[in-house]
Write a protein that binds this DNA or RNA. Structure first.
Length: 124
DNA sequence: ATTCTGACA
DNA sequence: TGTCAGGA
């Protein structure tokens, strides 16, 4: 892993900063964490510490919700993303870059986004 | 001042 | 999701 990614994954930002940068409330940020959409590390004083990647993640989640996705669907997107990440890693073939992840995520978006929904009523 | 968990008038 | 409590 390159230094640049190490910095992006270095969690040091307090929730207050995340709130300002994402326009999300602490309530929402913590809720998404409870849904395993993000996994901020904890400081010795139990404070949540976020990385730049977490911010990107939250902004994406925010976009999905704006597009009309519900938690279950967004979870599916990241679960598949994680599955692919593991699969690619197992095949020990092509290294997964941030660009690859962004693309995979976008594809999932188009795939599951083919239909508007209202929580749980799938049509495909 | 800031953040954390739990709970719901 | 908002918001208040009570503690760290």
């Amino acid at each position: 892993m390159k230094e640049k990614e190490l910095q992006r994954s270095r969690a040091v930002l307090p929730i207050g900063t995340i709130m300002k940068l994402t326009e999300l409330t602490a309530r929402q940020i913590r809720y998404y964490e409870s849904q395993n959409l993000i996994l901020p590390v904890r400081s010795e004083s139990n404070r949540r510490l976020y990385s730049l990647n977490d911010i990107d993640r939250l902004l994406e989640i925010k976009d999905y919700l704006a597009e009309g996705f519900n938690m279950a669907e967004i979870k599916r997107v990241y679960e598949k993303q994680a599955a692919r990440r593991q699969h690619e890693q197992q095949k020990l073939t092509k290294p997964v870059t941030d660009a690859d992840l962004r693309d995979a995520l976008h594809n999932e978006f188009l795939t599951v986004g083919g239909f508007r929904h209202d929580s749980g009523t799938f049509s495909n």
